[in-house]
Design a protein around this nucleic acid. Sequence first.
DNA 1: CTGAAAGCGCTTACAG
DNA 2: CTGAAAGCGCTTACAG
Lengths: 349, 349
Amino acid sequence: MTGKPVRLVDIAREAGVSLGAASQVMNGTGRIGQATQRRVLEAAERLGYRPNALARSIASGRSRTIAILAENASGQFCMPVLVGLNRALSGANLTSILYDAAHDDDLRAAHLREIQGRQAEGVVVIGEGPDVPASQIPHEVAGLTVYAFARPPGDGGVSVVPDNEQGGRLAAEHLQGLGRRTLVHVTAQAGLQAVTDRATGFVRGAEAAGSEVRVLYGGFDRRWGYEAADRILAEAPGTDAVFAGNDQIAVGLAAQLHARGVRIPQDVAIIGFDNVAGIEGDLDPFLTSVDPALTAVGTRAAQVVVDTLSGSAAAPASAVVPCWLAVGRSTVGGPADGRDHVLEELLLH
Amino acid sequence: MTGKPVRLVDIAREAGVSLGAASQVMNGTGRIGQATQRRVLEAAERLGYRPNALARSIASGRSRTIAILAENASGQFCMPVLVGLNRALSGANLTSILYDAAHDDDLRAAHLREIQGRQAEGVVVIGEGPDVPASQIPHEVAGLTVYAFARPPGDGGVSVVPDNEQGGRLAAEHLQGLGRRTLVHVTAQAGLQAVTDRATGFVRGAEAAGSEVRVLYGGFDRRWGYEAADRILAEAPGTDAVFAGNDQIAVGLAAQLHARGVRIPQDVAIIGFDNVAGIEGDLDPFLTSVDPALTAVGTRAAQVVVDTLSGSAAAPASAVVPCWLAVGRSTVGGPADGRDHVLEELLLH
DNA sequence: CTGAAAGCGCTTACAG
DNA sequence: CTGAAAGCGCTTACAG
């Protein structure tokens, strides 16, 4: 506990000017003489003045606060979005207040009341991808709502999501570049948006280069990878590359193919999606994987907020963020150090 | 954008009482007649009144805001702490404002100014474990500072960290319970606090049961696991269980032992530390691992804050949170489904 | 170019 | 038990 914090009046008094003048100097508004400005600034510096953001907000009517509402902060994909979002918001001098609905409707409702009471100028919902509808934020809660890594509820909300189709294309181009021509895409349920987009991108990318692609639909889990591996071996033995709909499937594929004596990547190259190893900070990953650039998704969502609040964008617009490819040993191979790389990659899970 | 938000005066007018009376009803303070109370509450409900938290803070002198300052939000261990912290703070009606220093001193300094300006009643630093000194928070920034999953800087700050020693003991007891008697602890540099504590707990736990333990010091990486595996095979061939200082070492050990024909867990049981698979939400993990209960660390840190602010604790006190054991197949085995479980576990990294 | 005054939405003694 | 008034720390027209 320190003594009374210094207020703007203290600065004004110290500098020998009026409160209003001091305020204008601190905000760079109004036209104040050079000499006066310096006197005020020096006084502020000398007394260690920190403007009271609360008083400022209430007087100006601008809270400079953005609420970040995570549908489920414990989810695997929330953190990177949050990091990008918070960093960019903070860089634009906006403060983030954080809420976690944890999939609980009552909790979310309570958070929404809080957000409204805190006078947030906007809320960014961090969702769980394009196939999980995020909850609706009533217009009275905040003037602006942006859905990051989320499917906006109902009609047309503003959203920022990874470009799954371009991610699929990236995978195709990488494999083409490595000379692979007989491709299979092993993915999850055909009805999902993420599945459709990734598949579309992959197939188009491959067909543009004259390759044909067989697509196998199943689920987002490792077991489907095992099963798909055996089907590929039986039905499409000439396959030299597989693009998996996510990393779980890719791991299942790799394990099963390896167990069947298939060499990775010499016989079959494998690409996953999500870059889970990258989220964990693995620098020399086994699995080549499409990274959905979630931190960039967060950054972009912040940008939408900033542009809208500053008025530099007429109306907020949805955006799509390009994926990038995290290249690992499952496509380009690794050093011949005598280790069993497939085995090595199977142990933390 | 909605119309003008409704204010407390609007409620007072609607209910036919004075501003002060309405305020007291909303806060449950003062002694107001039942009938009046109901009139006010009904008016508030009818008009959808949301108290302006900013005005409330400035008038009452209590911001009900806690700053969460992550030394590095991108780090692998930050999220679980953040989740526990935010949830508990929110449950106590405190709002979290989030800052990420990202290991940058200038950024941290800017955040500290912001935190002070926002009138935060406390700051919780999320650090990177007991071996990375966290940065000092000047006393003028906030009345209360708590270090969560961090080593407080300099003298004696209040900290909440996992109980590494108890975690080590847990590992020993689990192995004893499985009948393992020839134990090795493969860990990192002897100088580290986390290393010392985990080793102490493990050795004491084992010795209490009459077992002896050999301790091998190296680094926190997988390569050290490989090397240690070969040393164990050469120098202590009767070993039937290994406790690794973290999951990376454990994976290295498992991979190398497996490659040498050692069966896990039949011949050698393996325990790791950190429960990385658990952070990722794996429900059927290969690796048995000590979980440092980071979410509980966050929850506990919030509790220290809440107790201190409410005055129910005279002075804030440091705390230590017990670890728990996430049991996997590397100690208790798994279903005989014909799969190569060690292989299975090596692929996502 | 500068200063005195009103106002932001609330809380909190303080009289009645 | 209730109401009128002062005050929290700032910003913003508005006169000079």
